[in-house]
Design a protein around this nucleic acid. Structure first.
Lengths: 121, 121
DNA sequence: TTGACATATGCTTATATGGGAATATATTTG
DNA sequence: CAAATATATTCCCATATAAGCATATGTCAA
């Protein structure tokens, strides 16, 4: 059993970088035809259709037919669970700015150590 | 080529529900031994170790040896990219209407007001 | 050293899924 | 109807990865 399906869990849906790019195009709230997204992202049309299909199934976008076009529109409210989840941790970088650098350095050190012994998987 | 590896992309790392549960345990900022997480989540120990391993590689947690225990601690700063990305869409649900719609209505209202006063042209 | 405890690390297997190419399904226009 | 345009869908393939189980590694205590 793997993780929840991309068409079910919004966290998984946005885990795909190309899907975040698609969302980025729709981020202004306006409607976009598939072809417009294709041009803007220089992405193959089937890929765009598929990603939009996933986003539609998970509810992040909605679609309406207009002529021979299908206009996709962001349904940003579906992203709220992600925001709610991550917002809890906001305090850690807004209140402890001084420690961010330190943590970054520690992390880099740990990576060096783990890379030195083990490897990626 | 599939999506970026879970050990590389924090979006992908948190796409796994069990990993979000693990993060949830560490959310208070304190250190936790693997066994504590195992007990709290009632999850098999190897699973917890593996998930913590992924989170460590992506930088979301750090680990320190203490005796026979390995203490894991949240490195919340690594979640900031997620927060930054999703925060852009916050306006869509904090305002009852989307910003664009709202602005259109505000303009319409301003017109009504100015027309009523007989100002402007 | 031995044994108990804590954690990590192989394995294998099942499955989801993204990409690419080709094709199917509308929809509009001539 | 035929052609053009827009979009979706299907098929195949490669790969990532999570689960489960067994086992290895590491550390402390007696």
């Amino acid at each position: 059993m793997a993780r929840a399906a991309t068409t079910t869990d919004v966290f998984n849906a946005i885990a795909e970088p190309r899907r975040r790019e698609v969302i980025g195009v729709l981020a202004d709230g306006r409607e976009y035809a598939v072809g417009e997204v294709v041009v803007r992202l220089k992405m193959p049309q089937p890929a765009v259709s598929k990603h939009l299909g996933v986003l539609r199934k998970v509810g992040v976008v909605s679609v309406i037919k207009r002529g021979q076009h299908r206009m996709y529109k962001l349904n940003a409210a579906e992203l709220k669970p992600v925001h709610d989840w991550v917002k809890v941790f906001e305090q850690y970088w807004t209140h402890q700015l001084g420690q961010i650098k330190e943590r970054a350095e520690r992390k880099a050190l740990e990576r060096l150590v783990s890379d030195a012994k083990g490897e990626e998987r």
